[in-house]
C-alpha cells in the first residue's frame, strides 16, 4: 500500500467509527425526546443512561475526523474548507445547540422537556447535513471560477440524490439507534423499553433499506461515475444485503436462549454493523482515488511524507495509551450490571 492509501484507510476508519457512534448518539437523543411523556416504559431513561456518559466521547471523534483530514490531506482540506463553509457552519450551529441543551436538560430538571426537545430535534437534523458532504464530494455541485471554488447551493438543495442521502442518514440513524437501544434495554432488564425499541427498529429498518435503493437509483443519474464503480462490486453489495436480512430476522425470531422473549437484538446489531461496514467499503473503494471528483485525488492532496510519518506514529502511540481507557469506560457503562439496572 502506498502512504496515501494507508492515510485514506485511516480516515475511512474514523468516518466509519464516527458514523456508528454518531447514529447511536443522535438517535438516542431523538428517542429520549419521543418517549419523554411515556415514563412508564422507561425508554427515555434508557436512552439517557446511554447518552449521558458517551456524548463527549462521540463528539471527540468528529474533531478527530476534521483534524485527520487536514493533517493527512492538507490540499483537500483547502478545497473542502472553501466549499463546505455553509453546510459546515450549519452543522456546527446545530451541534452547539444540541450538545449544550443536552447537558442543560440533565441539570435543569424542571425545564427538562423543552430542553430535551431542542436537543432532540437539532440532533436528528445533524446526520442529514453531515451526510450531504458525501454527494458534495461527487463533484456535481462544485463550480470552479477564476481562482475561486464555490459550492452551488441552489443545485445542491434541489438534487434528488442529496435528499436520498439525507433520508438515508436520518432513517438509518433511527434504525441503528433503536437496535442498539433494544439491546441495551435487554441487558438492563427493561423489557417494556425493549419491546418499544424493537418495534421502532422493525419500522425504521425497511425505510432505511428503501432509502439506500433510492440513493443508488438517483446516483446512477447524478454521479454515474461512482455508480458504475460501485456496481463493479455487485457481489459484495449483495452480501451486504444478506446481512441486512439477517439483522431483520434477528428482530422477529424467538430468542434462542430464552424462549419467552421475541428477538435476538445482539445478533441484529452485529449483522447490521457488518452490513454497513461492507457497504461503506464498496462506496469508499468506488470513490478512490478521488477525494473531490475530479480534481482532488488522494495522491495530489497528500501531506508531506515526514509529517505523515510523525502523525502516523502519534496514532499508534495515542491509541495504545487510550485503549485501556476505552476498555475501562466500556466496562463501567456498557457492562456493569449495577449501572445498567439502577432504578433511579
Amino acid at each position: 500500500m502506498t502512504d496515501a492509501l494507508i492515510a485514506i484507510t485511516v480516515l475511512w476508519g474514523f468516518v466509519f467509527i464516527y458514523a456508528v457512534m454518531a447514529t447511536m448518539d443522535f438517535g438516542a437523543g431523538f428517542w429520549s425526546m419521543i418517549y419523554f411523556n411515556r415514563q412508564k416504559t422507561r425508554a427515555t431513561d434508557i436512552a439517557n443512561r446511554y447518552l449521558s456518559p458517551t456524548w463527549e466521547v462521540t463528539n471527540t471523534f468528529i474533531v478527530a475526523l476534521v483534524v485527520a483530514v487536514y493533517s493527512l490531506f492538507p490540499t483537500a482540506a483547502y478545497t473542502l474548507g472553501t466549499i463546505l463553509l455553509v453546510p459546515g457552519s450549519m452543522i456546527l450551529l446545530l451541534l452547539a445547540l444540541r450538545s449544550a441543551f443536552l447537558v442543560f436538560s440533565n441539570i435543569a430538571t424542571e425545564y427538562k422537556k423543552p430542553l430535551t426537545y431542542i436537543s432532540g430535534i437539532a440532533g436528528i437534523l445533524i446526520p442529514g447535513l453531515l451526510i450531504s458532504v458525501l454527494p458534495i464530494t461527487h463533484g456535481g455541485f462544485v463550480e470552479y471560477g477564476e481562482g475561486l471554488t464555490q459550492l452551488n447551493l441552489a443545485r445542491l438543495f434541489t438534487s434528488e440524490n442529496v435528499y436520498a442521502f439525507i433520508g438515508f442518514a436520518i432513517s438509518s440513524t433511527l434504525f441503528l439507534s433503536s437496535l442498539l437501544l433494544a439491546d441495551y434495554s435487554k441487558v438492563s432488564d427493561e423489557m417494556d423499553a425493549y419491546y418499544v425499541y424493537l418495534r421502532d427498529a422493525k419500522i425504521s429498518g425497511p425505510i432505511s433499506l428503501l432509502m439506500a435503493f433510492c440513493i443508488m437509483l438517483t446516483l446512477e443519474r447524478e454521479a454515474n461515475w461512482i455508480y458504475t464503480r460501485m456496481m463493479d462490486d455487485l457481489p459484495l453489495l449483495l452480501i451486504s444485503l444478506g446481512f441486512f436480512l439477517i439483522s431483520g430476522l434477528g428482530l422477529f425470531v424467538t430468542n434462542f436462549f430464552d424462549k419467552r422473549i421475541q428477538g435476538m437484538p445482539r445478533l441484529s446489531v452485529i449483522a447490521v454493523t457488518i452490513q454497513y461496514f461492507i457497504a461503506s467499503y464498496v462506496y469508499g473503494k468506488a470513490h478512490l482515488p478521488y477525494i473531490i471528483y475530479p480534481d482532488v485525488t488522494i495522491e495530489s492532496a497528500f501531506t508531506d511524507p515526514n509529517s505523515f510519518r510523525a502523525v502516523f506514529i502519534t496514532y499508534i502511540v495515542g491509541f495504545a495509551i487510550l485503549f485501556p481507557g476505552f476498555i475501562y469506560f466500556w466496562s463501567l457503562f456498557m457492562h456493569d450490571k449495577k449501572y445498567l439496572r439502577q432504578k433511579g
Binding site: P74, A77, L80, G81, T82, S89, D304, S307
Partner: peptide, 14 residues
C-alpha cells in the same frame, strides 16, 4: 479550516 483554509493547509503540512 472553514475560514482560514490557506492557513490550515500549511498547518496540516508542517
Amino acid at each position: 479550516s472553514l475560514l482560514w483554509p490557506g492557513f490550515m493547509e500549511v498547518i496540516g503540512r508542517v
